[in-house]
Design a protein around this nucleic acid. Structure first.
Length: 156
DNA sequence: GCCAACGTTGGC
DNA sequence: GCCAACGTTGGC
């Protein structure tokens, strides 16, 4: 069992969009980084908890919680020439990119800002607080996950 | 919109 | 396999 943090740009797809999907479930497509792909393919498991994080926007931080409801399967956008995620070097026989499905669990009434996360002495391992870490899928160790979750709920 | 820090590509 | 050039990410 693992915990994760997935980044998303709320202008493209936000926590509210996830909450409004049918079954409050959506496939997490468009991951085009090998390290993130390897996490998705090898380590993201059914039932894992996922922090949803808004990036590249006015209010950057953790906004909610989701869970994995389907493990890795081929990301269909890699085969679609119309998609911005199209990868001509990938083929259906040998898909290069995968995605998982996640289901909305909770939106925190107040977001936990990146600035605050960085100021927490308890939080030292998560990729967010490390310099130059740009992964859009990152593991969160259990102790830090629990601490962050309690702070999110406390702010709510 | 800037720019630092990465990741990827491709010539050699 | 090196590395320069280029592209992308993402906080500010």
């Amino acid at each position: 069992m693992q915990n994760w943090l997935f980044k998303t740009e709320p202008d493209a797809f936000s926590i509210d969009d996830l909450a409004n999907m049918s079954n409050q479930t959506e496939h997490w497509d468009g991951i085009r980084n090998y390290q993130a792909r390897n996490f998705l393919r090898d380590n993201v498991k059914l039932g894992d908890q996922v922090f949803i994080y808004h990036s590249s926007c006015k209010d950057v931080g953790i906004v909610g919680l989701a869970q994995v409801v389907k493990e890795a399967y081929p990301d269909h956008t890699q085969f679609d020439p119309e998609s911005k995620y199209y990868d001509p070097k990938s083929s259906p026989d040998n898909p290069r990119w995968v995605m998982v499905d996640i289901q909305f669990k909770q939106k925190f009434s107040k977001l936990l800002p990146l600035k605050v996360i960085k100021s927490m002495p308890e939080i030292t391992e998560i990729g967010l607080v490390k310099k130059g870490h740009r992964l859009s899928i990152m593991p969160v160790q259990q102790s830090e996950f629990e601490y962050l979750l309690s702070r999110c709920k406390e702010a709510s």
